[in-house]
Design a protein around this nucleic acid. Structure first.
Length: 782
DNA sequence: GTTAGCAGCGTTTTT
DNA sequence: CGCTGCTAAC
């Protein structure tokens, strides 16, 4: 599609390196001097400090085009590493478009993890793995750690596997294998941390498996212990580019430094102000130290912002200036005017969601002389994913289409994980974790006792659980009904495995056969719970997703690393996502709800990491504001439900830090007495906007009311009224309306509870008093 | 061996 | 509040 235009820009198909060099390079058009320098300084270490919205992806992709055009490297001699799959995908697309299809091969582009997998598959034996190793996700990792903890006779209640997983991840992020963990950490996890770590690594090797951290750690180990292998890759990758360098951890830093040691052509792009992954081991130090690590580095600052209006940029810049220890950049823009950053307080989280929903619709229609803004161009960015629920509830009610990014994922669903476990067994029958997951799903009469028998038998033979099961059967340890079914499973696994080895077999047919023959599909068909049809639907979708891959193995790897599932459809939708997920994205209209102390900045972050944590939260706020192009609205609520308890909230301290003259304080609807607006314009010029809000009569009234009376009385009262008319009039099959979930059909009635399948919200159990007959719904003034 | 019912816990953020 | 995981009863 759009690649047509770009191909034509290069004047036709044969885009060889020489052809590109011969004519003025079109990819340089429109670059500002700094960007141009970032593209043209090819040799030696380069640090590109690229502020938000300064066109760094543009510079990066142009740099790759330039490398090729100048004939400095062939495509596959370039390594471009990104941090997220999203970024990798985007870079691939943009580079692909710049290059047209005419250049042979593409650069190595991918995340640290996906590139590590490629390398590791080639040299797996050097760390004791086979090249077909499996990659465990977090869930598998936890289950395995539970086993390790149990085997060490430790009470899992006092020493939870999750905690150990965090510890081990942290060590791996620092590139410490079990032997390298410093003695200062010895007291970790009841003084057993290192021991359990070693045991866990041993288990992983036996299972021929890795976790996420291992992918990097193993590659670093190989590079360190096998100079010949390292040299091979050092020679190979003449030019290395790294995106989001501020997010790299120590293992990734070592990985890069080892690879770049020979040619030293490493170009790192980053922004210390957008470092928001400290909690998972990212080291801002990496970027701060760059010039020391790579002597003679060229440092280039991209400071002209092309994204946001002057007010948005000013608000973000002033906020972030409260952080210490920055490299420091001065973002500027040619754009003038535009809307100020808007600030609004609400009574509670529900009202905040309602207001944002209405505002989004108003913007969509076009309001106050502004051109209409498509929902696709609007986003709600939250601090923590649980905040998304309020918006989902509200949007379902009013029928506002939304898309959740990074929410509960397709591949994390029960039925998908089960099916995947079957596929994993087919690909590698020795995958014990997969076996454990499905040995009794569907029910095969194998409870704890039977499974222990299999375990014991497997351990005695030093073999996998499938082999153990065979032995247990042969020795007659398992009898009765279970025996027949287990035998059936074991033989199935063997047969499926054979089929994966044969060429010319359709992996899609195989997948369908596996789900059929295992009885898994049947299990859900016989299941009469309301979720069952949805699950079967998901399984079909899973099989459909297989079409994009050549074989099951490739698919499994993709899922392990990518785990995303954007089934785009044509409806325009507002996006809801976390601030972390929003990094690298931009939207004309951005809503930033939940700016309340404890929520944002997050209490936990401050408790755990003190000032460092607070500064990272502030960077997160900076990332949030700078996502907005033309309109940015920050909001907070006076009351919020936390664990089902109402809590009163204080506006975020970040609101204090916003420059008043770039902020407009809005008066929320439904507050009598004028609310914040009354005080906001009262001539206090240079004080922060929040000071006005916080001292306003409206805010104080809210505080008082928060303590003196429950919050949702008016709405409750409406329910009661409806209740009298509606209850007991329902029968199965009736169409009903629910304030939160919208329209639906009654599937069953138990006392005063209804099971309703909602058109948009799925099947829920709701109290009869909370729904009304569909045809009366229009009369209710919600 | 399976299921229902309850107690206790947790909410950052992700490859 | 909603989920997981454990216990007690089928």
């Amino acid at each position: 599609m759009s690649s047509h235009d770009d191909t034509r820009a290069f004047d036709g198909a044969s885009l060889s390196a020489r052809a590109m060099a011969a004519r003025p390079a079109p990819y340089l058009d429109g670059l500002n001097p700094a960007q141009r320098q970032a593209v043209e300084v090819l040799d030696g270490p380069v640090l590109m400090l690229a502020g938000a919205g300064t066109g760094k992806t543009r510079a990066l992709t142009a740099r790759i085009a330039h490398l090729l055009a100048r004939g400095a490297a062939r495509p596959n001699e370039i390594l471009a590493v990104t941090f997220t799959n999203k970024a990798a995908r985007e870079m691939k697309e943009r580079v692909g478009r710049l290059m047209g299809q005419a250049v042979e091969g593409l650069p190595w582009m991918g995340t640290f993890h996906s590139i590590s997998v490629k390398i590791l598959r080639r040299h797996a034996e050097l760390v004791g793995l086979k090249s077909n190793f499996t990659i465990l996700d977090t869930d598998d990792q936890i289950r395995l750690l539970k086993q390790v903890i149990a085997a060490a006779n430790i009470d899992e209640k006092r020493w939870p596997a999750r905690q150990l997983a965090g510890l081990i991840d942290g060590w791996k992020n620092r590139a410490w294998g079990p032997e390298q963990v410093p003695s200062a950490e010895a007291s970790a996890f009841n003084h057993m941390g290192t021991e359990l770590y070693a045991a866990y690594q041993q288990r992983l090797l036996t299972l021929n498996a890795t976790d996420f951290g291992d992918l990097l750690l193993h590659v670093v180990t190989i590079f360190q212990k096998h100079p010949d292998v390292l040299e091979q890759y050092q020679r190979w990758f003449r030019y290395i580019l790294v995106d989001e360098y501020q997010d790299t951890n120590i293992a990734q830093y070592l990985w890069l430094r080892l690879l770049a040691a020979r040619h030293k052509n490493i170009c790192c792009v980053g922004d210390d102000d957008q470092s928001i992954y400290g909690w998972r081991g990212a080291e801002v130090g990496n970027i701060l130290r760059f010039e020391k690590d790579f002597p003679g580095a060229t440092v280039i600052r991209l400071e002209q912002n092309y994204r946001s209006t002057e007010h948005i940029l000013a608000a973000a810049s002033v906020l972030i200036s409260a952080n210490a220890g920055r490299l420091g950049k001065t973002l500027w823009t040619e754009a003038t005017g535009g809307e100020k950053v808007r600030l609004i307080g609400h009574w509670d989280g529900e009202e905040e969601a309602r207001w944002i929903g209405e505002e989004a619709e108003a913007l969509q229609r076009g309001t106050r002389g502004m051109a209409p803004v498509s929902l696709n161009d609007q986003a709600i960015l939250v601090r923590a994913s649980h905040q998304m629920r309020a918006f989902e509830d509200r949007f379902l009610t009013i029928g506002l289409p939304y898309r959740v990014i990074g929410g509960p994922r397709f591949y994390e669903r029960l039925e998908i994980r089960d099916a995947m476990a079957y596929f994993r067994l087919a690909v590698s029958p020795e995958d014990d974790l997969a076996f454990e997951r499905v040995v009794n799903t569907p029910k095969r009469g194998l409870g704890d006792k039977g499974q222990q028998l299999i375990q014991r038998s497997a351990r005695a033979a030093g073999a996998s659980l499938v082999v153990g099961a065979r032995r247990a059967l042969a020795e007659g340890l398992i009898g009765g009904r279970a025996a027949g079914q287990l035998l059936h499973l074991v033989e199935n696994v063997a047969r499926w495995h054979q089929r994966t080895l044969r060429d010319g077999q359709s992996h899609i047919e195989l997948a369908e056969a596996i789900l059929e023959e295992s009885g898994y599909t049947e299990m859900w068909q016989n299941d009469k719970t309301p979720e069952a049809p949805g699950r079967l639907e998901n399984l079909k979708e899973l099989v459909k997703a297989l079409e994009q891959f050549d074989n099951l193995q490739g698919f499994l790897e993709h899922v392990a690393l990518i785990m995303d599932n954007d089934t785009e459809d044509a409806t325009e939708k507002i996006s809801v996502m976390t601030l972390h997920a929003a990094k690298g994205l931009e939207f004309p209209v951005v809503f930033l709800p939940g700016w309340e102390d404890g929520l944002f900045p997050s209490q936990r972050s401050m408790d755990e990491s003190g000032l460092k944590g607070l500064e990272e939260e502030r960077r997160l706020a900076y990332v949030g504001i700078t996502r907005a192009e033309t309109l940015c609205t920050i909001s907070f609520a006076g009351n919020r439900r936390v664990y089902g308890q109402w809590q009163s909230q204080m506006p975020s301290r970040f609101i204090d830090e916003l420059p008043a003259k770039h902020v407009e304080v809005l008066t929320p609807p439904g507050l009598y007495g004028g609310g914040y607006g009354a005080a906001a314009g009262s001539g206090i010029e240079d004080r922060a906007a929040r000071a006005d809000v916080y001292n306003s009569p409206g805010w104080r009234r809210m505080q008082e009311r928060a303590t003196s009376r429950p919050t949702s009385q008016p709405r409750e009262a409406r329910h009661v009224v409806i209740d009298l008319d509606a209850v007991s009039a329902f029968t199965e099959g009736d169409r009903v309306f629910h304030q939160k979930f919208g329209y639906g059909t009654i599937g069953g009635i138990e006392g005063d509870k209804l099971e309703v399948t909602f058109d948009k919200a799925g099947t829920k159990h709701v109290l009869a008093s909370y729904v009304v007959a569909a045809e009366t719904a229009d009369d209710i003034p919600f």
